[in-house]
């Protein structure tokens, strides 16, 4: 559905009210909705209406947001219970995270780390460690140590940029 106002972008904000039989409907894109005040400001009923709008907005925004790599949508994932590609887990984390928690609890991966993806992981962990050490050294005014950690961090970042 196209936005009622600009007639160009996809309408993702749907507003419908029924006040004593007078039905008002609005189908707008996020931009026009923001300009028209349907976003948050225009709100004759104060916070009540924005509370009412929120679930509508998130659902319709989800339906139209599509994974740029595989084309999966929130709807297709909710229907199948399956991710469309590796990126979907990040993109639709709101949808997956509660589901994953229900299956696996709050567990995190402790098993094998692949060589290629693992290289980045190991580098990232080393960087985090050096940053922690650096902060601690500065706090404790151990400036020689701090300089050492800074050099190591720089070397790591340069190495990372080369790779």
């Amino acid at each position: 559905m196209k936005c009622q106002k600009c007639q160009q972008r996809e309408a993702t904000v749907h507003y419908k009210s029924n006040i004593n039989g007078a039905v008002t409907e609005a189908h707008l894109c996020p931009e026009c909705a923001g300009k028209s005040g349907y976003d948050t400001a225009f709100d004759p009923f104060g916070t009540m209406l924005s509370d009412f709008l929120r679930p509508w907005r998130s659902l319709s925004a989800g339906q139209s947001s599509e994974c740029p790599f595989c084309g999966a949508t929130e709807q297709s994932i909710a229907d199948s219970g399956k991710a469309g590609c590796a990126r979907c887990y990040d993109l639709f984390s709101d949808l997956f995270d509660p589901y994953i928690r229900r299956i696996h609890g709050r567990a995190e991966h402790t098993g094998k780390i692949p060589a290629t993806a693992g290289q980045e992981l190991r580098q990232r962990r080393e960087k985090e460690r050096l940053q922690r050490e650096l902060k601690e050294a500065v706090e404790q005014q151990r400036y020689e140590d701090a300089a050492k950690y800074r050099d190591q961090l720089n070397a790591l970042q340069e190495g990372g940029a080369d790779a």
Binding site: K82, A83, A86, Y89, D90, I100, H104, E108, H109, L121
Partner: peptide, 15 residues
Amino acid sequence: SYAFSDRMGYLTQCP
């Protein structure tokens, strides 16, 4: 490159 995340490990079609 394998689909992998630090937290979730190897990424699979079904969670």
